[in-house]
Amino acid sequence: MAETTLSSTPAPAAGASPLLRMEKVTLRFGGVVALDDVSFEIQQGEILGLIGPNGAGKTTCFNALTGVYQPTSGQVVFDGLPLGRRKRYQINRMGIARTFQNIRLFQNMTARENVLVGADAHHRTGVLSALLRLPRHRREEAEGHRLADELLELMDLAHRADDLARNLSYGEQRRLEIARALATKPKLLCLDEPAAGFNPVEKQRLMDLIRTVRDRGNTVLLIEHDMRLVMGVTDRIVVLEFGKKIAEGRPEQIQNDPAVIAAYLGVEDDDA
């Protein structure tokens, strides 16, 4: 299917550099092409939706920009620097954090301890400093606890701070995973289907939360199947199908794009 270009997509401000660029990224697994020459940009302070039918390559795209997979060709440029073959922890320290389709918390740690794990990502003191309780270690520890409490409050989890993660409800665990990701102080927060399993009230709450995260200074990349949520919270949307980008534009443009309708309904463009 040919890519649809929407000319009325808002252009970035003159002289502005995108926070992230996917530049002709192709990713192959043997004879399977998971991503095929995919290019798009994310502007600072934007909420960008990444959507498409099952198997479109959305999570693979996340994995390519967070260091899980190395592109076969093309490159990912973040904050002006090619990611190259950097390790996942190095990419995280550059300012990219993510959540996962399947919740990945430390189930036998408390909510606060889970967030502290994220806060530790930027700590510079080592084991010796911790054992000797040196001043710099104590400062970093105090800052980590302050940040953890702030994020738990933001996620409405302050009252569950000392509860084990495994004892939290499904929705609380989802919010805790976002809090842990934010604790790494990311410039770009990648959310992989954060509303999975949510009821309508929880989805509305999540929309408000995503806007709050953006208003705090984070840029957000969102994978989500719930179209009402995506259309209600994103500034722009990129659509993938079979590993190819088929459309890009504002929510109202994507909603009425024949190629997107065809991809979701499984019909030819002309029939859509």
Rank of each mutant, 00 (worst) to 15 (best):
Q101W: 11
D36L: 04
I42G: 04
Q173Y: 03
L128E: 11
V115T: 07
V230C: 04
A121G: 09
G232L: 07
R28P: 01
T110E: 07
D120A: 15
T26I: 01
A11H: 11
Q44H: 08
Q253K: 09
E153L: 14
G95N: 01
I103R: 03
C61P: 00
D162C: 14
L19G: 07
D269Y: 11
E23H: 13
Q101E: 07
V201L: 13
V33I: 11
A121F: 02
V25Q: 01
P186A: 05
R93L: 08
D79A: 15
R28S: 10
I246L: 04
M227V: 04
N63S: 05
H123Q: 14
E140N: 10
R205W: 13
D149W: 11
V68K: 08
T99Q: 05
V220F: 13
G266R: 14
I246C: 06
F106R: 01
D149V: 08
R139K: 13
D226G: 03
E23A: 03
D149M: 11
F40Y: 15
A34L: 03
L176E: 01
N102H: 15
L168H: 00
E143N: 07
L105H: 08
V213D: 15
M94P: 05
E41S: 14
G52V: 02
D162A: 15
L128I: 12
S17C: 08
M1E: 15
K185N: 11
A158D: 08
A272K: 09
T59S: 07
R138T: 01
D269I: 14
K187R: 12
A119S: 10
D257S: 12
K58P: 01
E41R: 11
T59L: 06
A272Q: 07
R98M: 14
P71L: 01
P194S: 11
E241S: 12
I254Q: 00
L265E: 02
R88C: 06
A97H: 00
P10Q: 13
L35N: 01
C61E: 06
L131K: 14
V76P: 02
L152M: 09
M109K: 10
F106E: 03
Q70K: 00
H145M: 12
E172K: 09
D271L: 15
P194N: 10
K187W: 08
N63M: 06
L128K: 14
M227P: 00
A161Y: 02
E153K: 14
R160A: 15
A165R: 04
L189S: 08
R211M: 13
L168W: 08
L157H: 01
K244N: 14
N54C: 03
L154D: 00
Y69E: 04
D36I: 00
A195M: 10
E241C: 11
T60F: 00
E177D: 13
A247Q: 05
F106Y: 12
R21W: 01
M94Q: 06
I51R: 13
R214W: 07
V233H: 05
R98W: 07
R214T: 06
H123P: 00
R216M: 12
T9K: 13
M109V: 03
F78T: 04
N256C: 10
L131Y: 15
E224N: 02
K87C: 00
A13M: 10
A119K: 07
R112Q: 09
S129E: 11
V117T: 15
E177I: 06
V115W: 09
G197D: 10
Q90N: 05
E177K: 01
E150P: 00
L83S: 05
E153P: 09
I237V: 01
V68Y: 12
V230S: 03
